[in-house]
Nucleic acid binder design. Structure first.
Lengths: 149, 149
DNA sequence: TATGAATATGAATTCAAC
DNA sequence: GTTGAATTCATATTCATA
């Protein structure tokens, strides 16, 4: 496997999995039959400019570079402006209604953006249900989303 | 000095100075008569969610959390849309013309955003001169800026 | 709760090999 | 130019103390 391919894989992994430390990368790659050491991962991270973000719930998480997250936020903002219908919260849940056919894309973006308030999210055709970490998170997340409109 | 004050100070420092490691914080605070250890800085960084961004020119730099940088980019995008007149590059220099009175604000935002392409920048009333790290950086930076319009 | 000292853990670099 | 092993260096945590 070439370095470029590995870099691409790391970019995907960091969006899909919760990577807390460089050894996590090593372990995941090992499971896929790619043997690589922490030293190489360290260099990869530097080249890809991945960042280690402190999570307030304890722990850390590697993430995409700010620049790329900015692009994700931009997409999110655009989609919200285009397809947003309504938003409501109840306890730790946030429910967003969109124009038909847009919820899945919205859900994917919300997940990719990895907002700390968000525990998980499920999307239908015109509805995204976001499960936040707690009631406060839900409120914060709602404000965040509304600011995009 | 209270923890809250120190946190505020760290937020300012991270925008003004190039902080490569936690000991840099310790040293800077010491010069200001604030005695604090690396352990405390580590906790502060976690609470403030500061991130360590790899710079492609070697080295690392602590920075504000992605969320806050997103806001800076949003301001930059808005100002560009409002006040942009023209842009041109020559070697490693980028020259941006703005409506009168807007260049200084633009320059400040560009500096705060800490784009890696940028070495430094000088602002007048309707002109910002950005010195990039090299010719390639200047081109990349120009594209970046244009994407805001 | 906030902190420092000591320590453990994680991450970056050096050096040699390829 | 890329990598792993060993090492150095940086950072997070533990444990004690205020």
């Amino acid at each position: 496997m070439k370095k470029k391919e590995r870099h691409q894989l790391l970019r995907e992994l960091v969006q899909q999995e919760v990577i807390q430390k460089q050894e996590d990368f090593v372990d995941i790659l090992k499971k896929r039959g790619i043997d690589i050491t922490q030293a190489t991962i360290s260099r990869d991270i530097k080249e890809l400019q991945l960042i280690k973000v402190p999570a307030q719930e304890g722990g850390y998480q590697y993430n995409l570079p700010p620049e790329m997250n900015y692009n994700i936020s931009k997409k999110l903002a655009r989609l919200m402006k285009d397809a947003f219908v309504s938003i409501d919260t109840q306890k730790e849940f946030v429910l967003i209604k969109t124009l038909p056919g847009n919820a899945f894309a919205l859900g994917t973006l919300i997940e990719t953006a990895k907002y700390q308030e968000v525990f998980g999210c499920i999307s239908g055709d015109d509805t995204v249900l976001i499960i936040c970490r707690d009631e406060d998170s839900a409120e914060r997340f709602q404000r965040r989303i509304i600011s995009f409109i």
